[in-house]
């Protein structure tokens, strides 16, 4: 697949354009503007976090931490904004640094993007650090760059310091 991705980059997206999207996304999530965040996604966007085991099994064939289709993704946001998601009630503070943004290549209408993240979550006098990278697929909808597939791959070997993944990672 990487061979395909290594084809010369088309004009589909520049790194600056991708960075603008990812940085705006980070701001939406840290500021709990989750409805705004949804607007950065395609209507059929999916959200995935594989298990910290780093299983080599093909997609969907190993136990995921999160594997939201679009319906579940929107339900997740709705619940996070509702009053009964105790793990975010009161809400945590998060701060995320997104960097090392790379446009890997283009496949049809899919723009493959990788970026590293470090996210601190602070709540109840404890701090948990989530480290990893995004493997995102972006698409252009009516000229606007949006996130079509969002995959957050953790470097953390377990969630022993975290307990849960309560917010959008």
């Amino acid at each position: 697949m990487l061979d395909q991705l290594n084809r010369p980059l088309t004009q589909t997206a520049t790194r600056a354009e991708v960075e603008d999207l990812l940085f705006e996304e980070a701001a939406c999530l840290d500021e709990w503007r989750l409805d705004d965040w949804l607007k950065l996604l395609t209507d059929d966007a999916t959200y995935e976090i594989p298990s910290t085991d780093r299983s080599q099994a093909e997609g969907g064939q190993s136990l995921p931490l999160i594997l939201d289709d679009n319906r579940w993704l929107r339900e997740r946001v709705k619940q996070l904004l509702g009053g009964y998601t105790w793990v975010e009630q009161p809400r945590s503070r998060t701060r995320r640094l997104v960097g090392n943004v790379r446009v890997l290549g283009v496949e049809g209408e899919d723009i493959h993007v990788q970026a590293n993240f470090v996210i601190h979550r602070l709540r109840s006098d404890t701090t948990a650090v989530y480290v990893g990278h995004y493997e995102n697929v972006l698409r252009r909808c009516h000229g606007v760059l949006k996130i079509h597939r969002r995959r957050s791959v953790l470097d953390n070997e377990s969630l022993k310091a975290h307990g849960a993944i309560a917010f959008i990672l």
Binding site: I49, G60, Q61, S62, L63, P64, L65, I66, L67, W72, E75, R76, Q79, T85, W86, V87, S124, L159, H162, G163, A164, I165, A166
Partner: peptide, 27 residues
């Protein structure tokens, strides 16, 4: 298998719609 794994993660996992709240309450 994909359906089964998704359904496990949906509620019982630390990223699921259920267990994450249990973690908070027990703490």
């Amino acid at each position: 298998r994909a359906y089964a794994l998704r359904s496990v993660a949906a509620f019982w996992g630390p990223g699921g719609f259920g267990s994450a709240d249990d973690v908070d309450i027990l703490e």
